[in-house]
Nucleic acid binder design. Structure first.
Length: 279
DNA sequence: CCTTGAACCTGCGGGC
DNA sequence: TGCCCGCAGGTTCAAG
């Protein structure tokens, strides 16, 4: 679920709930996620006021009033829920924060690939998790030439390169396939073999795909919150991801002969593409 | 250095 | 109905 657009949607939903609010109490309900929780994490949060929420790559940054940041990563299965006063922790809840208005922010993650840790605001860019991150694809730090520079020396398939957070930050397995489809580029192409026009097209496709997904998330966020406190969960309509065997939009060929959209393994993960549009 | 593959976890759906 | 298998949107570490 959580790639850049989903994380961005969660951040936008979290902002009005947390910003300017006091974390009255924080409670850990497990030993940790990927790594054990730092000693004193709950204590470090208690009594702090949240200044603002931001996102970097797939990380949620909760800026506190003491120049420290609570960093959250949703991993594969992490969710943030906003629950009403009196909420009782449930299965796979790892961290809950009771706010000054009684509401409870819940970090739930069944697979425990997520993360939650503190970092000093001043040291954010030097933290191992952030130091080597590539450019934000929706910022003006990102462009065709920047993408070209990131891909040029790579011998991996371009799809695999897009998952490398050093090249560009925030793209995951879904949007890598989606962007390459939109750009009309074969995911099996060697990253370094792309021409300048192709990297330009791909950079634009990345921006387009992510922007549209955020827009979809933003609009569905409102609706979803009417029935549940979960932030950023919504059904996307993907063009190729998860649609193997189905017809590719724009293709007029006979699926019974072509097989439609293909699913292939790359670097241990599934890639979806149309061999006719992405040749 | 670069690249690949496995590991980390739980839950779910499909096939038998 | 139940069991077993493969698979899942991410990151990191070891080994080649």
């Amino acid at each position: 679920m959580p790639e850049l657009p989903e994380v961005e949607t969660v951040c936008r939903g979290l902002e009005p709930v947390l910003a300017s609010h006091v974390i009255a109490k924080a409670v850990l309900h497990s030993d940790g996620l990927r790594k054990p929780f730092e000693k004193g994490l709950a204590k470090a949060l208690a009594g702090r006021t949240v200044a603002r929420i931001a996102r970097r790559a797939k990380y949620i940054l909760v800026y506190l009033d003491n120049s420290k940041i609570l960093v959250l990563h949703l991993g594969m299965s992490g969710r943030i829920l906003i629950e009403a006063k009196g909420y009782k922790p449930q299965k796979h809840d790892h961290l809950t924060m009771v706010l000054d208005d009684g509401r409870v922010v819940v970090f739930n993650d069944p697979r425990r690939f997520g993360m939650a840790f503190m970092v000093d605001e001043a040291g954010l860019e030097n933290d191992p998790a952030f130091r080597e991150l590539g450019p934000e694809p929706l910022s003006n730090q990102f462009s065709g030439p920047v993408l070209a520079a990131g891909l040029s020396e790579k011998r991996t398939p371009v799809k695999v390169a897009l998952l490398d957070q050093h090249v560009v930050a925030g793209i995951g397995n879904i949007y890598a396939s989606e962007a390459l489809f939109l750009a009309g580029i074969d995911p099996q192409r060697t990253a370094g073999s792309l021409s300048r026009p192709e990297t330009e097209t791909l950079a634009k496709a990345i921006r387009s795909v992510l922007t549209k997904a955020i827009k979809a998330g933003g609009s569905s966020l409102k609706d979803y919150r009417k029935v549940s406190g979960e932030l950023g969960y919504f059904q996307h309509h993907f063009t190729v991801y998860g649609r193997d065997g189905q017809a590719c939009p724009g293709c007029t060929c006979d699926i019974s002969k072509t097989g439609g959209i293909l699913k292939i393994p790359q670097a241990g993960r599934s890639t979806f593409y149309c061999p006719r549009k992405q040749a």
